[in-house]
Design a protein around this nucleic acid. Structure first.
Length: 423
RNA sequence: GGAGAGGUGGCAGAGUGGUUUAAUGCGCCGGUCUUGAAAACCGGAGAGCCGCAAGGUUCCGGGGGUUCGAAUCCCUCCCUCUCCGCCA
């Protein structure tokens, strides 16, 4: 959520920044509501002051036994009370309208984020490793998964539907090993504290990080209990500190594994084959709570922490900086990390590393203390570290051998019981 | 799921209609004293909103109601604890 005070003081800059990310918002209407709200508050508070004084006086009259005078005063104060009720109601309505507008306005891109019209204008920041050469015809991962019985796509549709793969045998072992490998890396080398959060969240949590209200159709929803299966660990982990002033030392770095549930509304029919786009997938996420002045520096560190996973696995990747048109709703700046998958011949996004500035913190009311000891909204960052299915795709496709087996990277072997090859 | 108890400041814990502008204790910060520390003593200290400011206003789990006035009375929802039942 943007700061209404900032919008009030910089309306032109806000409009301009929103335009670069193709967002339309009625800023003038919002500011009119804001002015009306403040005017109503001022009047209401003035009257409340009068009422408080008068009520105190009535108390005095009652004690002195001046009943008649007290009754007269009561009648007068009752009328003040009616006006207050009416003004409070107005304030409540203005508050609601303003909040409902603000909740639908995306974050502003940071200065320096490339201005663009579409994903085509994203910028490659750096590349690590190189495209692997094969002296045989490479297969797409779905063929390998089927041949080695790593995933049972057919039976998955029987018990749930498409997009809910069933990992079997070495495939299941690989999932489990990768999760543990990544959590261990972040906790032992990057200073993270591991968290295992609930896999369903309430609407307040979903609103705090920005999934609701705008993206409700992308979420699964359990109506009987009013809970949402998490689309990312970002939601439960960030909301751990909702409505708090964090007194502990920052940055506070948390990592969590969760399955992620996404309806992928609007993406129906795209990437239906294999493991490229799923309704349920596993992911290890990193969440940072940082002091406002540190967020840009920490953002750079966070990307490197995600990259480390891929480096250890020896996978060729590139880091992309998203342009203003492609950046996520709540983000002020975002890097994507993409792995090269030779079987499907595509760059696959396995991590999205975002700086949310104070946007989520304001929505979720997460604060820290400034130099002066005063509470202030902190900054939140998060990044996938990393998402499993596409990592598995790249790993399998890159490490496939002519004989149909798949070599397991050295670093991962301890996590899959010493297995050196799939198949 | 059933029965009961309870939700007050960082924590503990008073307060059942009007100097509560929320007592008191612990913890915390500053000071005096001390070679230094502890103890003792003195002082300070919550959050939001409106306002250039002075200042005002709201907040005792959430929401609603009664009243001139609500932490306090009423309704409702949520949560926690204890016991019972069921269960991985």
């Amino acid at each position: 959520m943007l700061d209404i005070k900032f919008i009030r003081e910089n309306p032109a800059a806000v409009k301009k920044a929103l335009a670069t990310r193709k967002a339309d918002a009625d800023i003038d209407g919002l500011l009119a509501l804001d002015a009306a709200r403040r005017s109503a508050i001022t009047k209401a508070e003035e009257l409340k002051g009068e009422r408080n004084a008068a009520s105190k006086a009535i108390g005095g009259l009652m004690k002195e036994g001046k009943k008649a005078e007290a009754e007269t005063a009561k009648e007068e104060v009752r009328m003040i009370g009616d006006r207050i009720t009416s003004l409070d109601e107005q304030v409540r309505e203005f508050d609601e309208k303003i909040l409902n507008t603000l909740l639908f306005i995306p974050n502003l891109p940071l200065a320096g984020v490339p201005v663009g019209e579409s994903a085509d204008d994203n910028v490659v920041v750096r590349t690590w490793g190189e495209v692997k050469k094969f002296d045989f015809k490479v297969k797409p991962h779905w063929d390998i998964c089927e041949a080695l019985k790593l995933v049972d796509f057919e039976r998955g549709t029987k018990i749930t539907g498409t997009g809910f793969p069933v990992y079997t045998g070495q495939g299941a072992r690989l999932q489990r090993g990768l999760i543990q490998f990544m959590l261990d890396l972040h906790t032992t080398e990057h200073g993270y504290t591991e968290v295992e959060p609930p896999f369903v969240c309430n609407a307040d949590a979903m609103t705090g990080t920005g999934q609701l209200p705008k993206f409700a159709e992308d979420m699964y929803y359990i109506s009987t209990d009013e809970l949402y299966p998490v689309p990312t660990a970002e939601v439960p982990v960030t909301n751990l500190y909702r409505d708090e002033i964090i007194e502990e030392k920052l940055p506070l770095k948390l990592t969590a594994y969760t399955p992620c549930f996404r309806r992928e509304a609007g993406a129906a029919g795209r990437d239906t084959r294999g493991l490229l786009r799923l309704h349920q997938f596993d992911k290890v996420e990193m969440v940072n709570f940082v002091k406002p002045e540190d967020s840009e520096k920490q953002h750079e560190i966070l990307v490197r922490e995600a990259e480390k996973v891929l480096q250890k696995l020896g996978l060729h990747y590139r880091v992309i900086e998203l342009c203003t048109a492609d950046i996520g709703f709540s983000a002020a700046k975002c890097y994507d990390i993409e792995l090269w998958a030779p079987g499907v011949e595509k760059w696959l996004e396995v991590s999205s590393v975002s700086n949310f500035w104070d946007y989520q913190a304001r929505r979720a009311r997460i604060r820290c203390r400034g130099e002066d000891g005063k509470p202030q909204f902190l900054h939140t960052l998060n990044g996938s570290g990393v998402a499993l299915p596409r990592l598995v795709v790249a790993l399998i496709e890159n490490n496939q051998n002519a004989d149909g087996t798949v070599t397991i990277p050295e670093a991962l072997r301890p996590y899959v019981g010493g297995l050196t090859k799939l198949g």
